[in-house]
Simulated scan of single mutants.
Amino acid sequence: MSALSAVVPYRLTGRRAEVTGPLDLSGAGRGTAEAVRFLRECQSQGLRVTWRAVGRPPYDIGLLSHLSPPDELPGAEDELAVWREGYAYGSLYHRRGPGFVTVLDRRAGRGTAVRLTLDHPELLAAFLRLQEPTPVDAVEREAVGLLVAERLVLSASGWAVALPPRIRRWPVPCTAI
């Protein structure tokens, strides 16, 4: 398995990743984008994550409800309780095909499952570029705006990162997703 992050300090033990320091969810820029990318990639690899958060998110915390909830989220205990209650592996993910990406979103608050196909060249390019935390100015603004509106990208303080993991470990049975 490749390294999950050169920025986030963690220990890997079997199928568990333990983050050794708090992750910044304050939306203050690259730090938050890197934290979200790390959690997304852990989800992609089917790893259980133990972590703590710092910083009160100025964005809708429901955007992250598909990721493993933290052990602590100071100042947002009610939101953390909702996150823990609503968390389900595979509630948001993407699959790639030739020239397109399909996203399934079953996060709480969406009502029913939403399946989106990104095949427009600019949207697809922006989504793929945002697999890594990226300054918003480096990506086509209209594409980022559409992806943010669909709740597929977190954009905060000039940085953006895609939210849906690419699931590489399917639960048994895989039809559960």
Rank of each mutant, 00 (worst) to 15 (best):
M1F: 10
L4H: 06
L4T: 09
S5I: 10
A6N: 09
V7D: 12
R11V: 11
R11E: 14
R11T: 10
L12P: 04
L12C: 03
T13L: 13
T13I: 12
T13W: 03
T13A: 14
R15I: 05
V19D: 06
V19E: 10
D24Q: 07
S26W: 04
G27C: 05
A28S: 14
R30Q: 14
R30H: 12
R30F: 12
R30D: 08
G31H: 14
T32K: 01
T32R: 03
A33D: 01
A33K: 00
E34R: 10
A35M: 00
L39V: 11
E41Q: 15
E41S: 09
C42M: 07
C42N: 06
Q43G: 09
Q45G: 12
G46F: 10
L47F: 13
R48E: 13
V49N: 03
T50L: 13
W51D: 04
R52I: 00
R52V: 04
V54D: 10
V54N: 01
G55A: 06
G55D: 02
P58K: 08
Y59G: 06
D60P: 10
G62R: 15
L63R: 05
L64F: 08
L67T: 08
S68W: 12
P69D: 02
E72G: 03
E72P: 03
L73F: 02
P74D: 07
A76I: 00
D78M: 05
E79G: 12
V82G: 00
V82P: 03
G86W: 09
Y87F: 15
Y89H: 12
L92T: 00
L92Q: 00
H94T: 01
H94F: 07
H94N: 06
R96I: 00
P98S: 11
P98V: 05
V101R: 11
R106K: 14
R106W: 00
R106Y: 03
R107T: 15
A108S: 13
R110K: 13
G111A: 09
V114Q: 12
V114R: 15
L116D: 03
T117W: 01
P121L: 05
L124Y: 13
L124F: 02
L124I: 09
A126I: 14
L128M: 14
L128E: 15
P133R: 01
P135V: 10
P135R: 15
V136L: 09
E140R: 15
V144H: 06
A149R: 14
E150K: 14
R151A: 12
L152Y: 05
L152T: 11
L152W: 06
L152G: 07
L152H: 06
V153P: 06
V153T: 04
V153G: 03
L154I: 09
S155L: 10
A156L: 02
A156T: 14
S157D: 15
S157Y: 03
G158L: 08
G158R: 08
A160Y: 04
V161L: 06
L163V: 04
P164N: 02
P165A: 02
I167V: 15
I167S: 04
R169E: 11
V172F: 11
P173C: 09
P173W: 13
C174G: 15
A176D: 14
I177S: 01
